[in-house]
Design a protein around this nucleic acid. Structure first.
Lengths: 235, 235
DNA sequence: TAGTGGTCTAGACCACGGT
DNA sequence: CCGTGGTCTAGACCACTAG
């Protein structure tokens, strides 16, 4: 049940439980989850607490509420081929390309009173005549989650591999926004563009299955990359 | 003050008031707005109602709350989140916005030996002082699938409503690519941009459940729109 | 210490959907 | 009709920030 003595808010514990039930397949896409009244009784909390948990999951896009009917699981089937968010390295390996990673910047930084490891990399593939860079990405990794991560050499190791195998933390979900930006001098140089051209930037946060935030990331995509998606239309 | 007899929820009226105060410049970017306690007293509602109003505005990106300090205006731009082609009309209805559609171009066109109805629209929402356009979209609709579709007035009717209710055709899947582009003279005029700014363009095809292609679309998004997504990470 | 937002309780009444 | 979510009240205690 819920831990009423710890510091973790009840609504957050409830959120985690519902999320896990969905991920584990107890509730499938389109299913109704138990009603607010049911959840109140099951977990012995008030409706406010239940509604706070559900409302967060609705804002996250994982649930949808329908007046008079119930609360439904809404597993988005949006599949983005976003190479950074799901494994740049793996993707290139499948294509028989050799990934290249160049560290542009690494330092510890403080934001909102939290300690982060900041890592800026240019990433691309090896070609006969040099390196073709495809993305520039900046990651902020909380040191509370990844103590000592600053000692790894990310020009040799994949960030996600280190996360998974050294820390046992598995990225599972990302929420992101996509924006157009103008390339600056640095990006133009790295991507080898001569003229001013608009580029795509993705900015988002990465979470584990349990909803813990493990990375904040900004990626600038080279004009050589395409950003594609397949989506189901609702309603 | 607030209208307690009407059908409009108090929290929504309060939301509207705060939004307008920000737009009118009563609170500027970075300012604190009155505390939750203050708002309770001023409008004679409970904290739950105040918090619901504020929480909606936070989710919209217009406000940010800092524990122990206050609630701050975060006026970048008003952002609308759209993640697929289907939701525009419904989405705006949920936000209590009035959708506006202006037909820029309509004609029949031939492409690859197929007859298409070509429809170019600017779409947006009605504001006090005019219309805020959010997208410009070009649709190519095969006349073999939609015979006679050119006779509908799409400044009054939703394209997807006509598809569904007049032709019994239900859009189900879309594949799309996202690209950055520079705004041209027309887009700048419609979106009200003075300078050259990069914009997002989405280009794709829409299919029924059975896989029949029913539409080719290009959409240019206004800088006031956000392109957001939640995605699962594979592997 | 005073004021802010964060969490939570224990109720109430209403509007919507399906039987 | 009953069960669902939508709105709202009137409190309480806590944690954070700043003077």
């Amino acid at each position: 049940m819920l831990d009423r003595n710890g510091v973790i808010p009840l609504y957050f514990q409830l959120e985690r439980i519902i999320r896990e039930d969905i991920v584990k397949g107890k509730y499938k896409n389109g299913d109704v989850i138990p009603s607010e009244t049911q959840l109140m009784k099951t977990y012995n909390v008030t409706r406010t607490t239940v509604r706070k948990a559900i409302s967060d999951l609705v804002n996250e896009g994982l649930l949808a509420q329908v007046h008079g009917k119930g609360t439904f699981v809404r597993l988005r089937q949006i599949k983005y081929n976003i190479w950074n968010f799901s494994g740049f390295t793996d993707y290139l390996a499948k294509k028989n390309e050799t990934p290249v990673s160049k560290v542009l910047e690494k330092e510890t930084a403080v934001e909102n009173g939290m300690d982060y490891f900041k890592l800026v990399r240019a990433r691309g593939v090896k070609k006969e005549d040099g390196v073709l860079y495809l993305t520039i990405d900046m990651s902020l990794l909380p040191l509370s989650v990844f103590p000592g991560i600053e000692k790894y050499d990310f020009s040799k190791e994949s960030l996600y591999n280190v996360m998974k195998h050294k820390y046992g933390i598995f990225p599972k979900r990302a929420s992101l926004g996509v924006y157009p930006v103008m390339g600056d001098a640095v990006t133009k140089k790295i991507f080898g563009c001569k003229r001013d051209i608009p580029l795509l930037k993705a900015e988002g946060r990465v979470y584990t299955e349990e909803g813990m935030e493990i990375e904040r990331v900004k990626v600038i995509y080279s004009p050589n990359m395409e950003f594609k998606a397949v989506t189901n239309i609702e309603g």
